[in-house]
């Protein structure tokens, strides 16, 4: 069975003074992968500037906009239609010998293959003295441990908006225990990587029909690589495995690699941004 989603993304930027030059890059187009077929995309801006479809440094699809005239207000509207396969997140074969899997994590080739998702970034560095926050149980499989980590993260942090921002580092999150989806994802990644399990930050949309946390904004979760299985998605904000409600846009080492919108605006004074995301599903 498959589900069809319609995603609308819109943002309106208003500036106190006239802007003479600006560049934006959107990283919001759902990717095409085994479980999601990307159907259509519609993107427009209120200044009728050219929308350039391109890629970023990691190969994910972007849209760049560079209005070549002065303005004080601009609105961007995007609509995506995605067909998502209904999947059972538990449908994979766990190896019967988890000891071998742990050995695999330790091999040099494995470390080289996943180097990018094993190293720490400023957002995924655990503060000193917090190594024991979550203990890995080597008698259990990697998958089980990660499921526990998912639960642990979910319990450790309380979902609360407006207490953290895109610059918040783990130290604040661990001590204050409040945060939003990207903070949950960063903490999960940091702990998994501390145990040599490759973990990547994922940015995307969540269909909220089931009452999940995620605000009406873009969502973030985690994918970890389990030897002999592959990449498995965890959503620590909601303590669930990633399934048909998760529509992926891109992945990276942390939020920095996945920021949905990057802008360089040459203007002085204040600016205001309104932004909304809506995900609607139609069963097919």
């Amino acid at each position: 069975m498959s589900l069809e989603y319609t995603i609308t993304y819109s943002t309106k930027n208003t500036y106190e003074n006239i802007v003479h030059s600006a560049h934006w890059q959107f990283l919001i187009i759902p990717e095409t992968n085994e479980t999601q077929d990307f159907v259509t995309t519609n993107f427009s801006n209120s200044l009728a500037a050219i929308n350039e479809f391109s890629i970023n440094g990691y190969g994910f699809n972007t849209i760049r906009v560079n209005p070549r005239k002065a303005f004080q207000e601009i609105t961007f509207t995007a609509e995506f239609k995605v067909v998502k396969k209904e999947i059972n997140p538990f449908k994979f074969n766990l190896s019967d010998n988890s000891k071998l899997d742990y050995q695999e994590l330790d091999s040099l080739n494995f470390k080289v293959d996943f180097e990018q998702y094993l190293k720490n970034t400023p957002f995924t560095t655990l503060p000193d003295g917090t190594n024991g926050l979550f203990q890995l149980d080597y008698s259990k499989s990697i998958f089980e441990n990660l499921t526990n980590l998912n639960q642990w993260t979910y319990n450790h942090i309380y979902f609360k908006v407006d207490v953290t921002n895109v610059h918040t580092i783990l130290e604040d999150i661990i001590t204050k225990r409040h945060g939003v989806c990207q903070d949950f994802a960063h903490l999960f990644c940091a702990i998994a990587r501390a145990y040599q399990i490759p973990a990547r930050y994922v940015s995307g949309y969540l269909h909220q029909g089931n009452g999940y946390f995620g605000d009406s904004q873009m969502h973030a979760w985690v994918e970890t690589y389990i030897p002999n299985v592959g990449w498995v998605g965890f959503d620590p904000t909601n303590n669930i495995l990633v399934a048909a409600d998760h529509i992926k846009v891109c992945h990276g080492k942390d939020y920095q690699d996945c920021a949905p919108l990057k802008g360089i605006v040459y203007s002085e004074g204040q600016n205001e941004t309104q932004y909304s995301v809506q995900v609607i599903s139609q069963q097919q």
């Binding site: 560049h23 890059q25 350039e52 391109s54 890629i55 970023n56 440094g57 190969g59 972007t62 760049r64 560079n66 990057k262 360089i264």
Partner: peptide, 22 residues
């Protein structure tokens, strides 16, 4: 490229890295 690296770079060219990657 301020869209790919340091976003406060005023001496770079937005989109340059994408052109390079392609």
């Amino acid at each position: 490229d301020p869209l790919e690296f340091k976003s406060d770079s005023a001496i770079g060219v937005p989109g340059l890295f994408a052109a390079y990657k392609k």
